[in-house]
Design a protein around this nucleic acid. Structure first.
Lengths: 254, 254
DNA sequence: AAGTGGTCTAGACCACATA
DNA sequence: ATGTGGTCTAGACCACTTT
């Protein structure tokens, strides 16, 4: 009943890897396997060849092949069992939560993101913001409130706080670019984010902005994002129209 | 300004690893470092010793040390930069989403979880459930609806579908044990889950059960969970009281 | 030039599942 | 007994950052 499907290995797996390419070998392999899964060439339940044989056929060492497979296990596309083998998970796939901004998300979905700037001010942070950004309460932080549209439909109210050093981000920047886009242009790259996702009734202002019933449900996301030095760069409190936005995650038991 | 704090390495890092222990060496090391971070012995911003030196002092090879560090990078506790080093992230930590059931979550928080079974029936799945569970629409699935309490307060309405083969789970099992607990007792271990988190207005029934205003906001979670063979075992549609429950996630840029 | 993490190799031994 | 993934070693070369 639970017998694995006979292994199927499309001919493109025999293609040699490109060692002159700057793309890591493990990534070339994992991308190739992922494409094969997404395209249906490796249907759910398929059992992969074992790590050593796969390495030999591709001219790669076992650790490299193993790392490629592990990437896909972590993505929830493959499962491994000792003594058994590696199989394709029996579930359709879905885009997962990534460390990108909503602006980037929409752009990649080919929706037209636009932004209306509601607030742009320098303030003293309250205790919560100060703690999240690791700044003093008598420091000055940039406080933003924006209304984000997708193809002209209001999607979410985005409130953000940024630490001193970003005070010179202009309203003009924010009307035409996503916040993360602006930060990247300044050489700031986000590496880690801690998020909390919840729900609540919308405020009167939010209901009006999002064009939903008064006290209607909104999906909320509070986030602190850190740069590659581990320093907090952004604290955001967002709320979204629940009929237009949700979060997808994949959990893997470790 | 962004100068890393001088490295601090508590004396317990000099303790030898236990090679007779069944716990993997990389896990012994990552746990030790994680505890040091959680306890404040390694405060935010601290720079770790480099991988090779750490390995020498612990009597471990570089790949093993590297794997230990990578575990914590993936958890969002450390950041690494080539040419720079490894540093502790400047953010307080929070419990993250794990592949456990709500019942387990509550138990580990020392809340008393109780359950009221609202529905326990064998039905023909609709198209959506059949697709999620990879079963035919003329198969028979177990349909459950439960009301979950935490210390006597209603927390969520949990609706689940399980594929044929789990039809013999009894109402008595479900009153006293979490669903995942029951499945584990049958030798079923969850390995992967795909989740979607959203929000909506509660139905009249849900409002009453959860003791919230009519049409009040609820947090929703739809999940398909897979066992270690990659087979779908459970499809759940849950809704929670948003004042009592939320989801935490950590995102790491890769 | 020196130091860091990122990648890769070619083995080894072990634990677990199946036949 | 055989085959699988899980762990571990002792090196190597490279890319990137700072001095």
């Amino acid at each position: 009943m639970a017998t694995p499907t006979e292994q199927i290995l499309p001919s493109k797996f025999f293609m040699d890897v490109d060692r002159s390419n700057a793309i890591p070998l493990y990534f070339q392999i994992s991308s190739r396997i992922e494409s094969a899964i997404q395209s249906g060439a490796l249907p759910p339940g398929t059992r992969l060849e074992n790590e050593i044989a796969l390495g030999e056929r591709l001219g790669l060492s076992r650790p490299t092949v193993r790392r490629a497979i592990q990437e896909l296990v972590d993505k929830g596309l493959l499962v491994r069992r000792r003594g058994i083998g590696t199989q394709v998970v029996q579930g359709r796939l879905s885009r997962k939560v990534e460390l990108t901004s909503l602006h980037d998300d929409l752009t990649s979905l080919k929706k037209q993101p636009t932004t209306e700037l509601l607030l742009h001010e320098l303030i003293r942070p309250d205790a919560r913001v100060a703690r999240a950004l690791s700044v003093a309460t008598n420091d000055t932080v940039l406080h933003l409130k924006r209304l984000r549209f997708s193809d002209g439909v209001p999607l979410g109210v985005l409130e953000n706080h940024l630490p001193p050093g970003f005070a010179n981000i202009t309203p003009e920047d924010l009307e035409s670019h996503g916040l993360y886009q602006i930060l990247r242009a300044r050489g700031v790259t986000m590496r880690v984010a801690h998020q909390r996702i919840g729900a609540r009734a919308a405020s009167a202002e939010e209901s009006k902005l999002l064009e939903i019933p008064n006290r209607g449900a909104v999906l909320t996301m509070d986030r602190t994002a850190f740069n590659n030095s581990g320093l907090p760069i952004e604290f955001g409190r967002h709320c979204y129209r629940p009929d237009l936005y949700s979060f997808e995650t994949t959990l893997v038991d470790k």
